[in-house]
Design a binder for these strands. Structure first.
Ligand SMILES: NC(=O)c1ccc[n+]([C@@H]2O[C@H](COP(=O)([O-])OP(=O)(O)OC[C@H]3O[C@@H](n4cnc5c(N)ncnc54)[C@H](O)[C@@H]3O)[C@@H](O)[C@H]2O)c1
Ligand SMILES: NC(=O)c1ccc[n+]([C@@H]2O[C@H](COP(=O)([O-])OP(=O)(O)OC[C@H]3O[C@@H](n4cnc5c(N)ncnc54)[C@H](O)[C@@H]3O)[C@@H](O)[C@H]2O)c1
Lengths: 210, 210
DNA sequence: TGAGCAATGTGAAAAAAATAACAGTTGTTT
DNA sequence: AAACAACTGTTATTTTTTTCACATTGCTCA
């Protein structure tokens, strides 16, 4: 319906921005105008209009020279580009303070990424639901991950077990990890690893506000 | 002692990596060898040796051609480069699930970034300590931030109040923000803003593990 | 109808970042 | 003490990402 899936290699930065465009525009959908200009979108996200236009060009979206980009088409093509047709299942591993905060947050957020399982070792959490997500014993990870076709894990376990847990997850078929544990994980290049490192971010901020 | 402060403009990526080198080597300090090779450091962080050498070159650190880089000197120069002499004070704003997790985490982490105040509107939290950090009424933000010379804020308030809270923080003298609220903040270019956006990160991971 | 404006689409240039290549150094070995 | 090995330091090259610049298009209005 919205043009074909462009699976030519997209720059990582472009993918990030596409996700942001969509999330922003999801809120506009239906309400306001049917169209949006590159400079408007750029302004809302602190980017340049050229950058927006180039990103949209890369996914084969073409706007109207007078009205700008059709918002529905834009959301549609971004979806065709970055979503998987069969949906993306995500597991959260380690249901502590941080894990619970993340579960609550993602549940509220409107997203295509479905957290379908959480894992812990704590008997009090296992076999309960937290934020409507079923919690399992980490020992069942292999089966559950296979059964539910989970490919992505959010890692919020204590640092001591980060490496061993990662090994288990990779053996279970996980292909991408969002790592909150500030422990360096040594994974093969075909695993997509993204680290969230607050300390590094704070130090970076500290340096640049000098 | 460890060479002079190089305040020539460093690339953001380099600053990030410097922070990581230091954190990694803090653990090595005293224990193992006195020196480390670029390829060792690179291996530990999934970088290339050339990148490590270039980063260290940029901060004026010179290694021994046979033994590699002196770990103490390395930690020292990184400190001279990215730390502020007077220390960096940080505030956490919004002591909810996420805020508490972050407070607990940073407290445990060995870092030069000191969280010296937290703010909320909840009467039950105001005037208590959480993870040894004193909690204040957000209405007192202006005074407290001035008094304690805080320049950096971690923003973990509900999305609805993210923009207004940011305005208040900027008026109070905050220069850098680590934003967890997935709300787009429109700040002037002299404010260093870093967004942590889980949804975008997950979608990015989802795209690249295809 | 056609001049004018305000967008888009995109090649070209520039800037930023990563990688490669290699000469120079330092110790070791024979 | 000469040849060798294994590093570093740095220049050059490549790749990636952003910005510039401008021709083209679609609409409006006189
Ligand atoms: N990057 C950041 O910004 C940031 C912020 C806060 C915390 N953290 C890190 O995130 C992690 C979690 O932090 P937290 O405050 O939620 O800690 P927490 O102790 O509250 O939670 C850890 C959870 O993991 C569970 N767990 C322990 N071993 C496990 C295992 N083998 N398999 C599965 N689950 C297991 C525990 O039962 C607990 O529920 C820590 O590594 C912490 O350092 C990072
Ligand atoms: N980026 C992420 O990965 C991520 C993950 C989880 C949550 N979040 C976001 O982080 C924020 C906090 O999440 P949470 O789960 O901790 O929410 P929460 O509701 O548990 O906590 C919010 C806290 O802010 C306080 N607060 C409300 N208004 C305030 C004000 N004007 N000034 C100061 N404090 C105020 C509340 O009293 C509460 O303590 C939300 O915006 C959420 O969307 C982001």
């Amino acid at each position: 319906m919205f043009g074909q899936i462009m699976n030519t290699k997209l720059p990582p930065r472009t993918v990030e921005r596409l996700s942001k465009y969509r999330r922003l525009l999801d809120k506009y959908k239906g309400l306001d105008e049917a169209h949006i200009y590159s400079h408007k979108l750029a302004g809302l996200l602190n980017l340049t209009p050229e950058q927006v236009r180039r990103d949209l060009m890369l996914i084969g979206l073409t706007g109207n020279h007078r009205k700008g980009y059709n918002i529905k088409a834009l959301i549609g093509i971004i979806g065709n580009t970055i979503d998987r047709q069969e949906g993306q299942q995500v597991a959260l591993v380690g249901i502590g303070n941080l894990g619970k905060a993340v579960l609550g947050f993602i549940r509220k957020a409107e997203t295509r990424m479905n957290i379908v399982a959480a894992f812990d070792i704590d008997r009090n959490k296992i076999n309960t639901h937290i934020a409507h997500v079923p919690c399992f014993d980490i020992q069942e990870a292999k089966q559950v991950i296979r059964e539910k076709n989970i490919r992505i894990a959010i890692l919020t376990v204590p640092p001591e077990v980060a490496v061993s847990t990662t090994t288990l997850l990779l053996q279970s078929g996980i292909r991408g990890i969002l790592n909150f544990t500030s422990v360096h994980l040594d994974v093969s290049p075909d695993i997509y690893l993204k680290d969230y490192d607050i300390i590094t971010s704070l130090e970076e901020i500290g340096f640049f506000i000098k």
